[in-house]
Design a protein around this nucleic acid. Structure first.
Lengths: 144, 144
DNA sequence: GTTACTGCAAAGCCTTTGCAGCTGA
DNA sequence: TCAGCTGCAAAGGCTTTGCAGTAAC
């Protein structure tokens, strides 16, 4: 908790209860929530907090590289406090998103992309889609 | 041109002038345009065509796997008639998007992700971001 | 003749913005 | 104190929807 405060201060961000709650919530979850989900899960703790504050806070955190924004092709963004290099896998059925560390293949892929394209790379977003183990057990048919 | 008609018919899609134009335009460009861009570039040819028709057509094509929708983290989607497996690289400065065939590293990455995660994978989206050769020559500073 | 598509307008939805008031440092 | 944050409401921007008319087959 104190650690979170220190991180925000390091980035010259004012430490407000709302920000701390959002930051703490994101660092303690693995579900990669949307702004709406974060807002709803914190309504009990902060009944007067507005959705706009959640958006502004998330945007501020993204700017300061404290969290990252995920674009999974859904209606809304998701947010992830894991900022170590990693890729995401989403279940096409239950929509769960799991992390996976960037494997050695990604490092060499990145190098080859850089060499072949001539781009000077600064980042990447890698998303895999499929059926998670749980949904496989439920024998759910993949529609596509 | 006849080929395009045949492809649409194969998919039980009615062949209308609007659809043919959109399909043709997408298959003859490398810029990965947005719906708005497609709409504007076809206004001269189809002055009465509405943006809603463009969206409906694109959605229909995506459903039938004739094109793919790209999510680059911009305000709007982009569309790509190249449906062979490939990854995308976007210039963080000029926003240009280029294709690159899926390299061998991706195949082995995919296998390892499948084995490690237990997911049964059905697809992936891989985006790299960086500075394209042209913008590098312009000595543009990367802000992030 | 059916079925499906087009075009227009309106609505939907996520996200951003403006601004007054408040609060953390 | 005072820059910066919060909260409310409204606006913005992309995309979807409803529906009547029209075109493809």
């Amino acid at each position: 908790m104190l650690e979170l405060t220190a991180i925000l201060k390091e980035h010259q961000l004012k430490v407000t209860p709302q920000r701390l709650s959002i930051f703490k919530m994101l660092r303690n979850t693995k579900v990669h929530p949307s702004a709406e989900t974060i807002y709803n899960s914190l309504r009990e703790e902060h009944p007067t907090m507005s959705l706009a504050t959640v958006y502004k806070t998330l945007d501020s955190f993204v700017q300061h590289r404290l969290i990252q924004q995920l674009n999974l092709g859904e209606d809304s963004y998701r947010y992830d406090a894991n900022i170590t290099p990693h890729l995401h896998i989403q279940c096409v059925n239950c929509k769960e998103v799991v992390d996976m560390p960037l494997l050695t293949q990604v490092i060499s892929l990145r190098e080859e992309v850089e060499n072949t394209s001539g781009f000077k790379l600064t980042g990447e977003q890698i998303y895999f889609y499929g059926l998670c183990p749980t949904c496989q057990k439920k024998r759910i048919l993949i529609k596509c």
